[in-house]
Amino acid sequence: MDSLEIKNLNVTIENKKILDDFSLTLPKGEVHALMGPNGSGKSTLAKTLAGHPDYSVVAGESLVDGKNMIGLSPDEIARSGMFMAFQYPSEISGVSIANFIRAAITARLQKDEELQATQYYKQLYEKMDLLKMDRKFTSRSINSGFSGGEKKRCEILQMMMLKPKYAVLDETDSGLDIDALRIVADGVNKMRSPDIGILVITHYHRLLSYIVPDKVHVIYNGQIVQSGDKELAFELDKKGYDWIKNESVTSL
């Protein structure tokens, strides 16, 4: 079966070990949640999977349908079907959203293919309507002066337009008010299909009542310490992360 298979990933940054033999399998067609306290290594995982050069992979693999992504450049990884929604999306002045997404789609085309402008805009507007984004956004610079909610919607818009095989959403819920949260969650739910595997990173269970996951994993100190069904998220919410800390200590 097709899957994103993260195998024994060991990652350091500035010689500090952040991910410690981290393994997780996300089958295509499923939505998994990854939860954990601040500093447990969630964003490190997301950026490592996307090929960020600051994170050194000491050992391990990230297999997209069997093909290892470790060592590929970030753009190659993206073109292989990986997508990451950033916890803190960069602001890039001067580059418009429409041109940016168009360049990203064009980069995925075969040599003899061409992107039809009218088709492209039709799709873009459709998705923007879904995310309740004003059409004016197309000509605005990437994330420049966007509110927190606008940035996160813009990340989901990019995911919808690029149609990845696997998507890692890093705290897409943080900083959102309830309306924005609902819109973003609706967008993600519309994407759910047998053709995509989604890993939702969060440290609140709130998002998971809108995006109901097939599985929940808990990360602590760069390792998965618990996996279970969606009930685990609610248990975690009731008992707090201290519970996990104690659990992981006792299980040692």
Partner: peptide, 25 residues
Amino acid sequence: DNQIFYLLSRGITKKTAQQLMVFGF
């Protein structure tokens, strides 16, 4: 570097990213 990474993470090559940035500017 984070801006470059952001553009690359969408599948855009370094050269295209540079072009986008230059025109953006």
